[in-house]
């Protein structure tokens, strides 16, 4: 049998081109392997080979999805692959979204098996896990050593035409699909068994996991914005120069509260965020928190007042649980200080 031809998609970082300062690079193709593809190629043990690698900047992809997909699909077609692999993206949000989107697009356009990999909290999971197989990885590239063998193994399974097992057996994230199977015991017996286990506080596995409905009720609209007190919050990492609270550049464990009484424009501030090119925000932090414009509106009476401090954290790879905890804590202060509305900006 001929070697399976694989095309691999990676971002600017894993291609060794650069970090955030290069996140706006357009798609390019290179013959053969680049970066993590080298590891995959070894793991294929001669049965498959990466014939080409597509590289695209994470910001470019996310800001120009249609153009990026159109350009990339042509590059992929030129290699006539049998299989397409994207990533793994771990917990890199824009990379994960790009991997999910392009994998889905390739599956639809070229009708070949596709596969990616990422961490369960990556936003790409919610968006694309029902469309494409995603191998579950750790949250950082430190787990590359376990991610690549899992991807290589599942690639071979996909190409073999064998039946794909349950997510827990194969190591991919649930696609949310259900399948009819034959089992020994009837439903009533299984249900009662589960109930008894539950009553005994023993472990049991549900056959029908409930979806997580975690959207919140929209807050009531502001009746008269010219009287409203508005607070500013950002996940873009804006802090006074020097980052006095030492907010981490990724996976932040804290947030800061910074007094802006008498501050009319954000000069003397910078970003602590390690997930985007900081140069534009460092030159003018109003590009992330629009304080200058809001001060003018406050002076003109277009809004009531701006709350006396802004809150900031770094949204880069930060756990959902941490963000929620930050928000709950700062909201107590906002309520106590009678804030009417919040403008939250993200990079």
């Amino acid at each position: 049998m001929n070697k399976i031809k694989v095309v691999h998609y990676i971002n600017q970082f894993f291609a060794g081109i650069g970090g955030e300062e290069k996140a706006d690079i357009k798609p390019e193709k290179r013959d053969g392997v680049v970066g993590p593809g080298m590891g995959l190629n070894g793991l294929f043990k001669g049965e498959a080979e990466i014939v080409g690698t597509i590289i695209c900047g994470d910001s470019y992809f996310n800001e120009n999805v249609d153009e990026a997909q159109a350009e990339i699909i042509e590059m992929i077609k030129s290699y006539e692959p049998d299989l397409f692999i994207a990533g793994p993206a771990f917990n890199a949000g824009r990379y994960g979204v790009a991997c999910g989107a392009i994998a889905k697009y390739v599956k639809e356009e070229l009708n070949i098996p596709v596969l990616t990999g990422m961490y369960v909290e990556n936003p790409g999971v919610d968006m694309y896990s029902s469309d494409v197989y995603m191998m579950e990885t750790g949250n950082s590239a430190a787990s590359m050593r376990t991610a690549l063998p899992a991807i290589a193994k599942f690639s071979m399974k996909l190409m073999s035409g064998e039946e794909i097992g349950m997510p827990s057996e194969e190591g991919y994230l649930s696609t949310g699909k259900r399948k009819n199977i034959f089992v020994e015991e009837i439903g009533g017996k299984r249900a009662v068994d589960m109930l008894i286990k539950k009553l005994k506080k023993e472990e049991f596995v549900t056959e029908y996991p409930m979806p997580i409905f975690d959207n919140v009720e929209p807050g009531k609209a502001i009746k008269d914005i010219s009287k409203a007190k508005i607070a500013l919050v950002t996940s873009g990492g804006i802090v006074p120069c020097g980052n006095p609270d030492r907010i981490e550049s990724s996976s932040a464990s804290k947030y800061g509260r910074y007094d802006i009484t008498g501050v009319n424009t954000l000069v003397g501030y910078e970003t602590a965020h390690g997930g985007y090119d900081p140069s534009f925000a460092n030159i003018d932090s109003n590009r992330v928190i629009p304080l200058d414009v809001l001060r003018e509106m406050e002076a003109n009476g277009e809004i009531g007042e701006i709350y006396g401090a802004f809150y900031s954290t770094v949204g880069n790879g930060t756990a959902v649980k941490s963000s929620l905890a930050f928000a709950e804590e700062l909201t107590e202060t906002l309520i106590a200080d009678k804030v009417d509305a919040v403008i939250l900006t993200s990079t």
Binding site: N215, T331, T345, S346
Partner: peptide
Amino acid sequence: MVKGIEKSGIPVVHICTVVPISLTVGANRI
């Protein structure tokens, strides 16, 4: 964060570039 604040009843507007991510995480006003 948007949801953590908004569940208190304070309305939040989320200004962001990657709208699909905001929709996924559950912002109401984008």
